[in-house]
């Protein structure tokens, strides 16, 4: 979700040369940066933006799949999908906690998501029309997420790297359950196979867009690479994803919707067709099918939860008062 996390990040920073050089030396020595360490303002701001947007992606990512929980075709599939969606909620929480170590509050991040100031991955603005979409999302969307997240386990910022290690361990189940759904459909009736192919056709290009703009068009890539927030460029990760996914699609007997896709012996990689960047930017900027609905759903959850947030604080106060009264009585 994840290379898109840098969208809107401002990497410029104003410290003097010697401070920046000392910081860079720590980064180059592969030292982890921890919450209270001195760090450039730009580094802090970039991480808050990226980790916050990564967290938002996990939380908003619960919505397209949540759409199918009650309609999963068997109890086994329903239990697995519930567990996956719950994991995504958990991943959002690990990431919010990591961002909070940089001095931003949970409330502030939530407000930025709801106001549209902070983004989340464009992929979640596509609708989940059929059960096969749940298979395609697990296989492709979680597959792309893993590709992006594995290098983040070595990110220079300690709390982010540690959160990513937990996330990656859990994410592998997501991709495998998705691929298994696709496999079951692809080996089923002609109608079921058709459903799987249709889902693949709709999710393939948006999955490639998850890696973010081309390296040449990515404004913040260089500084993020130097600070070792990012370890590989968007295009490197995208290529890696294509190379590992093509044989998986072949195994399913499904066709990737790209007539230009072919093995290039010279490069040792698959060549693939041009990505529709107009569509990408339209969706990032709010013009996707589901943008309005996703934010409306998050806003409803936040507003409907207001009395709960108030109640738990009041309950906490009440318990504390009771405890103190009991202590006084005992003395």
């Amino acid at each position: 979700m994840y290379s898109q996390g840098l969208i809107g990040a401002k990497t410029e920073t104003t410290e003097d040369e010697s401070f920046l050089a000392a910081f860079q030396a720590r980064i180059d020595a592969e030292e982890k940066i921890e919450p209270n360490d001195p760090m450039p303002v730009g580094y802090r701001r970039t991480l808050i933006r990226q980790i916050g947007q990564h967290a938002h992606s996990e939380i908003v990512g619960m919505l397209p799949e949540g759409n199918w929980i009650t309609r999963a075709p068997s109890l086994k599939r329903k239990a697995a999908l519930l567990a996956k969606v719950q994991d995504e909620g958990g991943h959002g929480l690990y990431l919010y906690s990591a961002a909070e170590t940089l001095g931003v509050s949970r409330e502030q991040m939530t407000e930025e998501l709801l106001s549209g100031k902070a983004k989340y991955s464009s992929i979640f603005n596509y609708p989940t029309q059929t059960w096969a979409d749940i298979g395609a999302i697990g296989w492709l969307v979680d597959g792309a997420a893993i590709m992006n997240q594995i290098p983040l386990c070595r990110c220079s910022y300690g709390p982010y790297a540690r959160a990513m290690i937990r996330v990656c361990k859990e994410e592998s189940f997501h991709q495998r359950q998705g691929y298994e759904i696709m496999m079951t459909l692809a080996r089923g009736t002609p109608d079921q196979k058709e459903l799987a192919q249709d889902a693949l056709n709709r999710w393939w290009w948006p999955s490639l867009m998850m890696f973010g703009p081309h390296d040449g068009d990515s404004q913040h890539g260089d500084q993020s690479m130097a600070w070792k927030i990012k370890r590989f460029t968007n295009d490197e990760l995208r290529q890696q994803f294509v190379d590992s996914t093509v044989p998986q699609a072949q195994y399913l007997g499904l066709t990737l919707p790209d007539p230009d896709l072919k093995w290039n012996d010279e490069r040792g990689h698959y060549d693939f067709g041009a990505i529709d960047w107009d569509e990408f930017w339209r969706v990032v900027k709010g013009g996707g099918t589901m943008n309005k609905e996703r934010i409306a759903a998050r806003k409803k959850a936040w507003d409907d939860g207001e009395w709960v947030r108030e109640a738990v604080l009041a309950h906490g106060e009440k318990r504390k008062a009771r405890r103190e009264a009991a202590k006084m009585a005992a003395e």
Partner: peptide, 12 residues
């Protein structure tokens, strides 16, 4: 140490 959570009191 494995992370953090927000909660109104120790039970929650």
């Amino acid at each position: 140490h494995c992370g953090s959570v927000h909660a109104a009191d120790e039970v929650m």
